[in-house]
């Protein structure tokens, strides 16, 4: 049973299910319809991204007429040239990278260690910790007190930590880690204890190395959240040099005149391919996720499966 829970569902188990097909060779109508519908929905999911990519390489003159483009014609690199010519883009990447990497490390370590303390089921400790972690899933203070806390009490305006800290722990992911930790074979932990290993040592040298799969899942969930984060940035950052990519992009939408904040556009503002710039900026913002996605995808599936099969 344990093996089944942690196995990626995309693989073996599912084709096992599908192969219970009837023996006769003629495909049934439902199967044909399934292929069709799945293909169409797949296209529906991908085409918008393609329109953005194609549009980012299409000349502004064409975009001004249609507003979209399915093939980059007339081809143009104007927007990318503009974006790469100054330091604003680099600053944006730097901010996003800082928020994502520091945030993920903090989130992951706090989540894993709290989850282990809960998973140990030690009387007098694990129960209260569970309750403390659980209540925020039911009731939250809301936006205003959080805003006052970060700006008035902690004084974190214009700091990247104001973007990281408010969303640092997700109770849901703590409980995913707990359920994984509880499946670890107890014999290993017991024998380590008999050999004289303390709690710390057991956690760092035995539990963590055994839990790499679930740690990867949790890190990825946090990582994507931080990469896509813009709401806290919008609330707490006012210094444009500190804006992460998503906020730079949001700024571009919110106000076309903000294109002036982009590199190289000061002099040639009138001629700036503003619409194309938006699309190019979008591509640069999603690109890392698009490249990482094929490799990371199965971990997400695993994480969801871990959660779902429990229910």
């Amino acid at each position: 049973m344990t093996a089944q829970l942690t196995e990626p569902i995309v693989g073996a188990r599912v084709d096992h299910v599908s192969r219970r097909a009837p023996r006769h060779n003629r495909p049934e109508a439902f199967t044909v319809v399934s292929y069709l519908v799945v293909s169409v929905f797949g296209l529906f999911c991908l085409v918008p991204m393609w329109m953005i990519i194609a549009g980012s390489f299409t000349a502004e003159s064409q975009l001004a007429l249609t507003g979209y483009s399915l093939w980059p014609h007339p081809f143009s690199l104007a927007a990318y040239r503009m974006l790469f010519s100054g330091s604003a883009l680099l600053d944006g990447y730097l901010a996003t990278l800082f928020i994502t990497s520091v945030g993920t490390v903090l989130s992951l370590s706090c989540t894993a260690s709290l989850a282990w303390a809960i998973a140990r089921r030690m009387p007098g400790i694990s129960r209260p910790l569970t309750v403390i972690t659980y209540i925020p899933m039911l009731f939250t203070g809301g936006l205003v007190p959080l805003y006052l806390l970060v700006t008035q009490v902690l004084g974190l305006q214009n700091s990247w930590f104001a973007v990281i800290l408010p969303g640092m722990m997700a109770p849901f992911l703590v409980f995913i880690a707990v359920s994984f930790f509880r499946q670890l074979p107890e014999e290993i932990i017991d024998s380590a204890r008999v050999d004289g290993a303390g709690e710390m040592r057991i956690f760092f040298q035995i539990v963590l190395p055994l839990s790499k799969p679930v740690l990867a899942v949790i890190a990825l969930f946090y990582g994507v959240t931080y990469w896509n984060e813009w709401f806290n940035a919008l609330l707490f950052l006012s210094d444009q040099n500190k804006f992460p990519l998503q906020l730079m992009l949001q700024n571009l939408i919110a106000n076309v005149a903000n294109a002036a904040t982009l590199p190289g556009s000061t002099a040639a503002q009138a001629a700036a391919p503003i619409y194309q710039l938006r699309l190019a900026m979008t591509v640069l913002t999603v690109a890392p996720i698009m490249f990482a996605y094929p490799f990371a995808q199965r971990y997400f599936v695993k994480g969801l499966t871990l959660g779902a099969t429990k229910g």
Partner: peptide
């Protein structure tokens, strides 16, 4: 070992105290 476990949980607990329960107290603003 209970204390050691609490030590492990401490960073997470501090976060919950400040960012989850702190704002709840701040609701008096309403």
């Amino acid at each position: 070992s209970g204390w050691t476990l609490l030590l492990l949980a401490a960073p997470g607990l501090v976060w919950f105290a400040v960012f989850a329960y702190g704002p709840m107290a701040g609701l008096v603003v309403a």
